[in-house]
Amino acid sequence: MSIDAVPPPVATGARPKRKRDWTFLLAAVVLGLVILAAVVAPWITPYDEATVDFGAIWSPPSAEHWLGTDQLGGDLFSRVIFGARPSLLGAIGLLAFAIVVGTTIGVSAAWHRGWVDALLARITDVMFAFPGLLFVVLIISVFGAGSTTAILGMGLAFSPVIAKYTRAIALEELSRPYVDAYRLQGVGGLRLCWRYVLPNMAPNVVGYLVVLFGDGLASLATLNFLGFGSQPPSSDWGLMVQEGRAAVVQGILGPTIVPGLAIALVVVATNIVGVRLSDRLAVRK
């Protein structure tokens, strides 16, 4: 309906009425609880992280073990809470590394344009071409398995998507006249980007990064599930899912579902929080 399309209504300067966003609040609370659990795990869990009880292997939920036990008789409820720490920390590490690499590439490309932009675009495209998981497995085959390698490798796999996104946001930001105003004041490129442009970009990028956090957590869990990352006795959720595999054959689903649900919960919550944050904070021209 193009020719009948009407330009957006003249801004009346009015702030629209805002209804309470229950979904956002719920998701934020859930995330908050998960983070809290990671921090206070040792104080709130009924059992220690590494308990072994050969008499209670893969037992169903009971009064002593609210969610049942795992392959070594450890309490699933306690372990899944303990698992919040390595899972969240791993995702944070992954994201931090990806942000540093990706933002540097993206903002450099946007600032320099020309052949620098073209070169970085080609490099990013090559990285994109590799399926993330395969890429990281390749790195692991070279450097050996382990949680640090997994985190950095997966971080590297996530950096192209951050590079593309930050490049787009940076391009828009750099087209605004205030950037020229700073240039006229003699502010050099690096300082301009770091001190003035990046902070202005932040509201447009934060929401997206929160969503990526959930993605990162799930991807890292996959890696750990495959045995390439965290090793036992870590309570990382991905690892827990793998350890519960054998029980599935015997019809006992608890050991896989409990950590699996934990992962899913965090991914959904970060998606909701991230998207809503984006909507609220993003600045459009």
Partner: peptide, 22 residues
């Protein structure tokens, strides 16, 4: 660069866009 900045300055067309909104 600093010396140049003191020689000549510019005021732009877009009043909002030419200010650092933070």
């Amino acid at each position: 660069r600093l010396r140049r900045a003191k020689e000549i300055q510019m005021v732009f067309q877009d009043p909002y866009g030419s200010l650092d909104r933070r």
